[in-house]
Design a protein around this nucleic acid. Structure first.
Ligand SMILES: [Zn+2]
Ligand SMILES: [Zn+2]
Length: 101
DNA sequence: GACTCAGGGCCATGG
DNA sequence: CCATGGCCCTGAGTC
């Protein structure tokens, strides 16, 4: 290999920030990684409120911080897999799913 | 067997 | 004070 995926080093579709690599199935930044992990970790009462909780916001990179609900949904729509989030407390829980590049 | 790549945890800064 | 954003460590996966 060595060729890797040249797509690394771009920007994530969630916040348009610089990607740190592949996280949860797609190229995301550390911000989305932590936020997505937290969202799954919370997994409790849907505190993520929006304008009617419908998540019908613009879902734009500029308003990503506006509504956590929209941000979380955008992560899913981007292609992030919640199943890859370790909620058991294990660290190196690497997923078997790799991007086709 | 050693290096790489990715994920989870905890930290520091920002709102 | 809490949330966001980031860096660090551990661990699976690859070579
Ligand atoms: Zn991002
Ligand atoms: Zn919203």
């Amino acid at each position: 290999m060595k060729e890797k995926c040249t797509i690394i080093g771009k920007t994530c579709p969630i916040c348009n920030d610089v990607t740190s690599g592949i996280h949860y199935g797609i190229h995301t930044c550390e911000s989305c990684k932590s936020f997505f992990k937290r969202a799954i970790s919370f997994k409790k009462s849907p505190k993520f409120k929006c304008a009617s909780s419908q998540g019908t916001c613009a879902l734009s990179p500029a308003t990503r911080s506006a509504c956590q609900l929209c941000r979380f949904e955008k992560c899913i729509q981007a292609g992030m897999l919640p199943s890859l989030v370790r909620q058991r407390g294990e660290r190196g829980g690497r997923a078997k799913l790799y991007l086709k590049c």
